[in-house]
Design a protein around this nucleic acid. Structure first.
Length: 193
DNA sequence: TCTAAGATGGGT
DNA sequence: CCCATCTTAGAA
């Protein structure tokens, strides 16, 4: 069952980030469906969070976050890695959830080919790695996640979630201490496990 | 125009 | 620990 727009339109980005852990992220690219269980996410709040790309500014890059919820915010990090985020909250409120890691579930051979390695935690245990495994590109910026290119499905399975601080955002000063990172307990595919 | 810096990952 | 790599944003 594909998540619908109202799931993403809720106002509490932390709640959405936590709810996304345990669900399944899919892409359909070049005739292949690949997907994995979301095992790690981070919440970014555009109004009260110095770590957010939308904090106190509205630019060409972050424009999609100011739009309606349920669309992809993809950006290039360190000139190499594509990082995949989901826009949440209503129009004008620029919140987003970063997907940091997945556990491969479907189309594993395709992911191995794209990553040029065999199945292991290294395949998808980081935001740049999972984008390569799922073939998420810069032109996926703005893709509608209720459509048929990239989407997320329910998975009825109880999960134990750990809350902790986010990674790689030391520049955000005191906001770097916020416990806005969520991951599946004891899962090998969590980054920095 | 120019420049600094970055929500990483892979190698020593 | 070290650093490749290149777009973007903000300054000049």
């Amino acid at each position: 069952m594909k998540l619908n727009r109202s799931f993403y339109q809720r106002g509490n980005v932390n709640e959405i980030a936590k709810d996304l852990v345990g669900k399944v992220l899919y892409t359909y690219k070049e005739g292949n469906v690949t997907g994995g269980i979301i095992v790690e996410t981070e919440a970014y709040n555009g109004r009260e969070d110095k770590a957010s790309h939308a904090f106190n500014k509205r630019t060409k890059r972050n424009e999609i976050m100011y739009g309606d919820a349920g669309f992809a915010y993809v950006y290039l990090c360190y000139g190499i890695h594509r990082l995949f985020n989901i826009v949440t909250n209503r129009e004008g409120l620029a919140d987003a959830v970063l997907i940091r890691a997945i556990e491969p579930l479907e189309g594993i051979e395709i992911m191995e080919k794209r990553r040029k390695m065999k199945l292991s935690p290294k395949l998808t245990s980081g935001p740049g790695k999972l984008s390569e495994a799922l073939s998420i590109q810069m032109n996926d910026y703005g893709v509608d996640l209720t459509g048929n290119d990239i989407w997320i499905e329910e998975r009825d399975r109880s999960v134990e979630i750990i809350e902790t601080t986010r990674i790689g955002i030391d520049y955000a000063e005191e906001d770097a201490l916020l416990p806005w990172r969520y991951y599946l307990k004891d899962n090998k595919y969590v980054s920095k496990f």
